[in-house]
Design a protein around this nucleic acid. Structure first.
Lengths: 209, 209
DNA sequence: TCCTGTTTGTGTACGCTGTCCACAATGTCG
DNA sequence: CGACATTGTGGACAGCGTACACAAACAGGA
């Protein structure tokens, strides 16, 4: 980023600069490609400077992961907002669920490295409501999924007794396809075939939940 | 393995010894924990000896991955074989599908490191029929899943027009749950809750395919 | 049986990584 | 203005993957 050597001894916002550099590295190569020394290099700073902001490499990667999760949430919000609210409520609810799945899979396809950084690193779900992981609209991807499922119950498309835990099933399905295609055995699946598989998968979820 | 220093200059079967060491390391720590130098150390051999059997670390990890996939296939075969063939064919077909899912998820739960070594490394699906990845019964996990789906069509539980590509949907679902629980945001999910989520997920697949 | 060539091991070395330590520049607050 | 906390630098270390040159063990034909 800042190619010109700093005139000031202090950097300004080194922490953010390191996270940005980490995001760039994760974009091509996933979380494993985030190397601490390289991040400091890109920030124009000595390797050890990073340790003033992160206890170790793991903490840096986790910060990158949080930022990546926020980007995913943004992508899902965009799909959600594109759903017209004019149709009958039942259709809107289903459309919202499918929008969440489409946003998730679309992000995985367009930004595989960041997707893996987002979802193969994080500590646990306890922090799924962490605003740092939310999109511009302030909601995390998990919250968006929950909203869609609540909506399905409200319009009577999902029996209330099947609502608890439904997040896990729906999430698992799309997440699994993403991982299989990204870093799993379906790695070389044709792009169009993968897209079709995504649509079919969302059908299955919509039908089977 | 061979703690006593070799008396012979040659090792015997170094390649296999390295793969075995790699499996041990992958068992705790997943594919990233497979370190080439450590493998040679455990085999009682100098670091460079590995390069007579693998072009680089990646090739070693891939060999470990193949071995791990074979173990998964074995676990699935065991579940499959435990299904009694006495019930009506329809029930048996569904039971086989569920056995595949149970075997897959059970292996992920019992051997998380090996599971990740098996499914986050491999090159692509082209080699899904590779006998090296098969279980003792000679079939890969992908083949077992396909067999279950064919059976479902045969007994009329799955419309033939939905058969093509059904592997991807079913596989995605179980794989996704496994990944979320193993190295994803559901990492700290209670063991019993995870098990219940698995059962519910298999329900969804069975219903929605 | 020796001689020769191929296979499979060893030794040394290099650059890269994450991380530790002591020290210096900068900002803040009494 | 001076003391203190913050944030940077510099040097060092062990461990990693890997390249290169060399040595031991085997294999086959003379």
């Amino acid at each position: 980023m800042s190619l010109a050597p700093r005139v000031n001894y202090r950097h300004g916002d080194l922490r953010q600069a390191l996270v940005d550099a980490g995001l760039d590295m994760a974009r091509e190569g996933g979380p494993d490609a985030v190397v601490l020394r390289e991040a400091t290099r890109r920030a124009g700073v000595s390797p050890n400077a990073a340790y003033r902001h992160f206890a170790d490499r793991t903490e840096l990667v986790e910060a990158v992961s949080d930022a990546a999760q926020s980007l995913v949430a943004g992508a899902i919000e965009a799909e959600w907002d594109a759903v017209p609210a004019t149709d009958p409520a039942t259709d809107v609810a289903h459309a919202h669920l499918r929008a969440v799945g489409r946003g998730y899979l679309g992000f995985a396809r367009d930004e595989p490295g960041l997707f893996r950084a987002a979802f193969t690193v994080p500590r646990d779900l306890e922090t799924a409501l962490d605003p740092a992981k939310a999109g511009p609209g302030g909601r995390t991807s998990f919250q968006l999924l929950s909203m869609a499922l609540d909506e399905l119950v409200a319009v009577g498309s999902l029996p209330p007794e099947r609502r608890p835990g439904a997040e896990f099933s729906a999430w698992s399905a799309v997440h699994g396809l993403a991982m299989l295609v990204l870093e799993g055995p379906l790695r070389n699946l044709d792009r169009d075939v993968a897209r079709a598989a995504g649509a079919r998968l969302i059908d299955m979820v919509d039908r089977g939940l």
